[in-house]
Structures are given as structure tokens and as C-alpha cells.
Design a binder for these strands. Structure first.
Length: 287
DNA sequence: AAGAGGCCCTGATAGC
DNA sequence: TGCTATCAGGGCCTCT
């Protein structure tokens, strides 16, 4: 599911709710995620205070006041729901599971605070939790990842240096987290459309101007998506269980056969599998 | 050693 | 209605 904007939406609402709050209890319902939930997870988190919720790339980070960290990756289908503890059904005592917005199956972990709890739900189990013991290890954890698009380190010099003599296509480059982190399949499509670059184009033949455009539009598209609450294709929900709105702004993603949105362009959007993922583009605008 | 491809997993949808 | 096939936003591993 979630690329950088969706994770940021989740981060913002979580941070508002749980910063400076103490974890009262952790309920583990299913340890089977992409990485098995650590055996000491419950101990690690219970009675600790969340200093703040931050994020790097597609990773959520709970910064605890004891300088330790809990990392959450949502994989493809992970969602986090905020549920009010007090709204209990007086007969069943279980009504927080009855919310129509909370999925009935696949809730793996609940982290309980005083008057509310957060529920991690992940049908496809591509997500995971990780415990990080100190700041140095946190830094090491992200060492292999490239800068986020917003970072000054993601600049033309870095770009040109990275693509030298490489034979991959530009779509492949944009979803490579070692090059730039946070962009996934949806936003790679959108960025290349706005930059007017064919996703199949080999990166060694990108002009300086094309590299600059990618840098500019990567920032623009992601920021715009954040402003619009992220994109929901099927799974993504914010912590209130509601969908994002940015999917309504897609220029190419999932628009196969529809007319290109650029004014004066009458072409239809094409779809091809590139880098093993569905790729959408306009044949006449992007070349 | 870069790059292509497979795989982890469940559920929604399409086609018969 | 009910089967099967295909596809999905990520990331890691293996093979060449």
C-alpha cells in the first residue's frame, strides 16, 4: 500500500494522539508478519512513554523516552487504526471491534494507551515491527537507503553521479530505495509523466534537464499527495479508517485507455509491465 | 556486480 | 453460484 505520503499521513495523526503518552499494555494476536514479531516486543513497549512519532522513508518510528525505538513498516496492506477505549458496548464490552471501519480479520497487534488504543492490521503480512536499541543502530538501520526526495542531498550532482554508466531504465531507478527512498510504484508513474520522460528510457541517456525535472517533480508530487491525505487504491486507510484523496489527482496511474490529461494531448494512457510492476504513461507526452 | 526475476501473503475482481 | 486466474501500492533474496 503505502508510499512515503501515506506513511506521513499515518505519522501525523499518530503523533498528535500518542506523543508523550505511556503505553499501558500490548496485546499480541498474531506474530506472523514479514519479520516475526520480536519475542520481547511486549516487554519492550509496555510502560514506556512515546516521546514522538517520526518517519524515515516508508518507515514509522516510535521514539521512546528511554532513547529506544520501535520501527513499523506497513508493507503493502498494513493499516493502523485509532480506537477509543471508552466507547464500549455495555452488553458485549467489545464494541471497539465493531467499528465498521476496523477490519474484522488480520489485526496483529494492539497498543493500548489510557483511553484509546492503536490496532495494527495487515492481511498480506508484508509489514513488520522492529525493535531498535539505540540511536546508532537506528542510523545503521537506514544506512543502505538513499535520501528522501525532500533532502538537500537529493540534488543534481548526486543524481548525475548515481546514474553514470548504468543500464537500467528510469522507472526502475525511481522505485530503487537505494537511490531515493520513499517513492513507490504509483508516484514513480506520476513523477515521470510530469517530467515528460518515457519510463523505459535508459538512465545513462538522461539529460541534465531531465534529471532536474525528476528532482523537482518528485518533491512536488509527494508534497501534493501529503496535502491531499495520501492515495487510496484499495487498502490504504488513515488512522480514522478513511480514504485519501490524491487518487483523484492521478494523471496516469490506473488510467489505462483513458485520454491523457495534458491539455491538447489526445492520446490514450498506455500500460506496460516495467520493473515487474504496472507502469502507466502517455506515449506522446513521454519520450 | 548490476540487473532481472521470483517470492513472501491474502483478498478483490474478472472471466468462464 | 462457484470455480480459477490474475493482480495489488514493498522489499529482499538468488541467480546469471
Amino acid at each position: 500500500m503505502p508510499e512515503l505520503p501515506e506513511v506521513e499521513i499515518v505519522r501525523q495523526s499518530l503523533n498528535k494522539k500518542i506523543r508523550q503518552k505511556k503505553v499501558k499494555k500490548v496485546i499480541i494476536r498474531n506474530r506472523n508478519l514479514r519479520i516475526k514479531l520480536p519475542t520481547d516486543f511486549k516487554n519492550f513497549l509496555e510502560n514506556k512513554t512515546v516521546f514522538e512519532v517520526s518517519r524515515f522513508s516508508k518507515y514509522l518510528i516510535f521514539n521512546l523516552t528511554n532513547e529506544k525505538f520501535c520501527l513499523i513498516h506497513l508493507g503493502m496492506s498494513g493499516t493502523i487504526h485509532l480506537i477509543n477505549n471508552k466507547k464500549k458496548n455495555k452488553f458485549t464490552n467489545l464494541s471497539f471491534y465493531n467499528s465498521p471501519l476496523l477490519p474484522k480479520k488480520h489485526s496483529h497487534v494492539e497498543i493500548v494507551f489510557d483511553d484509546f488504543r492503536i490496532v495494527y492490521n495487515d492481511p498480506r503480512r508484508f509489514g513488520f515491527f522492529q525493535i531498535i536499541q539505540n540511536t546508532l543502530n537506528l542510523k545503521k538501520r537506514f544506512e543502505h537507503l538513499g535520501p528522501e526526495p525532500f533532502n538537500d542531498a537529493f540534488n543534481i550532482k548526486y543524481f548525475e553521479n548515481f546514474i553514470k554508466k548504468k543500464n537500467r531504465c528510469v522507472k526502475d531507478l525511481l522505485i530503487d530505495q537505494k537511490f531515493v527512498s520513499g517513492i513507490g510504484n504509483i508516484y514513480a508513474n506520476e513523477i515521470l509523466f510530469l517530467s515528460k520522460i518515457d519510463p523505459k528510457k535508459k538512465i545513462k541517456s538522461l539529460s541534465k534537464n531531465e534529471c532536474s525535472k525528476i528532482i523537482i517533480y518528485a518533491k512536488k508530487v509527494l508534497l501534493n499527495a501529503i496535502k491531499n491525505g495520501g492515495s487510496s487504491i484499495r487498502d490504504f486507510k488513515n488512522t480514522d479508517g478513511h480514504r485519501g484523496r490524491f487518487q483523484n489527482n492521478f494523471k496516469v496511474y490506473q488510467r489505462e485507455g483513458l485520454t491523457c490529461k495534458r491539455s491538447n494531448c489526445l492520446s490514450k494512457i498506455s500500460k506496460k509491465i516495467i520493473s515487474n510492476r504496472s507502469t502507466f504513461f502517455c506515449n506522446s507526452c513521454q519520450n
